[in-house]
Each structure stands twice: as structure tokens, then as C-alpha cells.
Amino acid sequence: MIPLNWYMWLGGIVFCIGVFGFVTRRNIIIMLLSVEIMFNGVNISLVALSHYLEDLAGQVLVFFIIAVAAAEAAIGLALVILLFRNKETITVDDLNELKG
């Protein structure tokens, strides 16, 4: 039997890889991918807790997280297309009109 902590450590590691990608990359598609990696880190912890606590609430929550992730990806990618149509780039550092 694998201890619960191992699954939660794995979820934490995956979450922190997502945080690292989000703060260090400047490509907006990779930043969206990093958000998905963070979601998956949380999902691993939730499914593990759901199994070890014998309660299905965790899996239902994962279901909702996947629904929200799908919505977020659809709107985020629509924004990326809009951005590329107007600015011809997806590098976040080049988008500095509001600098003042």
C-alpha cells in the first residue's frame, strides 16, 4: 500500500513545476500550459485524498476542475488568437501599451 503522503508530494511537485513555468516563461501558450500543469497537480492530490478517505467528493471536485479548465483553455486560446491577429506576437513582454 502506497502512503497517502507520496501522492500528495507528487501533486505538490507537479504544482510547483507549473508555478516555475508560469513565472519564468514569456510565451503565452506555455503560460497557459503551466496553468494546466498546476491544475493537474491539484487533481492528483484530490483523487488520492478521495481514495484514501473513501469519499467521492474529491473526484466530483476534479470533475468540476476539468470543466473549468476546458472553459479557461477555450477563452485563453481565443484571446491568444486575438492577440496574434493584432500584434503578430505571443510574447508577453512585447505587449506593453498600458505602460504609460
Binding site: L4, I17, L53, D55, L56, A57
Partner: peptide, 27 residues
């Protein structure tokens, strides 16, 4: 960014050592 995310990772890993699970559910 590496230092910041490694810091978050340390906090997460150490705090999970003291996790106490509650009562088991129905399923």
C-alpha cells in the same frame, strides 16, 4: 522564479508531513 517555486515546494512538502486525515466517508 526557481527560488520562489522551490520555496513554495518546501512549504508544501513539509506541511504534508503533518497531515492528519479526518473520518472516512461512505464510499
Amino acid at each position: 522564479g526557481l527560488v520562489a517555486s522551490a520555496g513554495i515546494l518546501m512549504v508544501l512538502l513539509l506541511s504534508m508531513l503533518t497531515v492528519k486525515t479526518g473520518e472516512k466517508g461512505f464510499w
